Amino acid sequence: MKPLDYKSFYDKVGKANGWDFSKLKLVSEGAKWDFNEEIMKRSKASDILLDIGTGGGENVLNLAPSLFLLVGIDISVGMMKTAQSNLLKSEVLNVRFSHMSSEHLLFPTDFFDLVSCRHAPFSSTEVDRVIKKGGYFLTQQVGEGDKLNVKKAFNRGNVVEEYGALKKRYVQELKEVGFSEVQSFEYNSTDYFQRPEDIIFLLKHTPTIPNFGQEKTDFEILDDFIKNNRTEKGIRTNSKRFLIVAKK
């Protein structure tokens, strides 16, 4: 997908559910970290955090009690409406949300102690500009090979030219803009979705299979996929993730 296609897609998702996957029934085996925990390991109660691609803001709101101020941005208008609604319901006072592109961060230089980005594009140059000396940037991204058996079943999805290419590019960019320490990690977990509706939710609310549900045969293919991948633990697939931790 091109960036503009992503924006259109995420706008629709924002209006539909705010990117809240908390109700999915899913068992994961082999995940090596929890992204929020990785953020908290490197934070202090006096810190200011910027979250890029914040979606409906659920993760930022969960982190709020442990930090001084949190700012979540997203390119999707729909996501921001959901985030503002979630903020109002939460009655949390130290969180702000703003509609903004990660390519042009409208914040002062050296303003944030921490910057996080989960499953969203970012500009290494802009992240480096807004983060303080000694601050941390953490990003978790979807790696090539994610949901591989699903993509093979539908014969569409992201084309993998080189496994690890995205992680390699991000690491190189962060080093080039001046981050002093850049570490990277990855895992490939086995996921078991407990119900067919969990798989349908995933496919309708992520770009794993482009335009899922619009092809006449999509649900026939999905039915076969479920039959072929059902186990005692659930409907099996995988999650490929990588984590980058960069210190300025």
Rank of each mutant, 00 (worst) to 15 (best):
M1A: 13
F242Q: 08
V71Q: 12
F35R: 08
V160P: 07
E144H: 11
V127K: 06
L61C: 00
Q214N: 12
F201C: 02
L87R: 10
S8F: 11
V177N: 07
F35E: 01
V115T: 04
R169H: 08
K175V: 10
K7M: 08
P108I: 02
Q140F: 04
L93M: 13
V92R: 10
T206L: 07
Y163W: 10
Y170M: 15
N188L: 15
V160N: 02
H205G: 02
D128L: 15
S8W: 10
E162V: 03
S124H: 04
I209C: 01
I244K: 11
V115C: 13
I244H: 12
L67C: 10
D128W: 14
G134N: 11
F68R: 14
I48T: 15
R236M: 09
S22P: 07
E181K: 13
L50D: 00
Y136P: 02
W33I: 01
F68C: 10
S102A: 15
S43G: 15
F35M: 10
K240V: 14
R156Q: 05
T237Q: 00
L70E: 11
V27M: 12
T82D: 09
V160R: 02
A16K: 03
N62M: 12
N17Q: 14
P207E: 09
L26P: 00
E126V: 09
K7Y: 07
G134R: 11
D218I: 11
Y192L: 01
V142F: 05
D74Y: 09
F193G: 01
L203A: 01
Y136K: 01
I221R: 02
P108V: 04
Y10A: 10
K240F: 09
D223R: 12
P121S: 07
F122S: 00
G18A: 08
E232P: 03
T217Y: 05
G178K: 06
L166A: 08
A31V: 06
V177M: 10
T82G: 06
L50I: 03
Y136V: 04
E197S: 10
G78H: 09
L105R: 06
E58P: 00
H119L: 14
E186M: 09
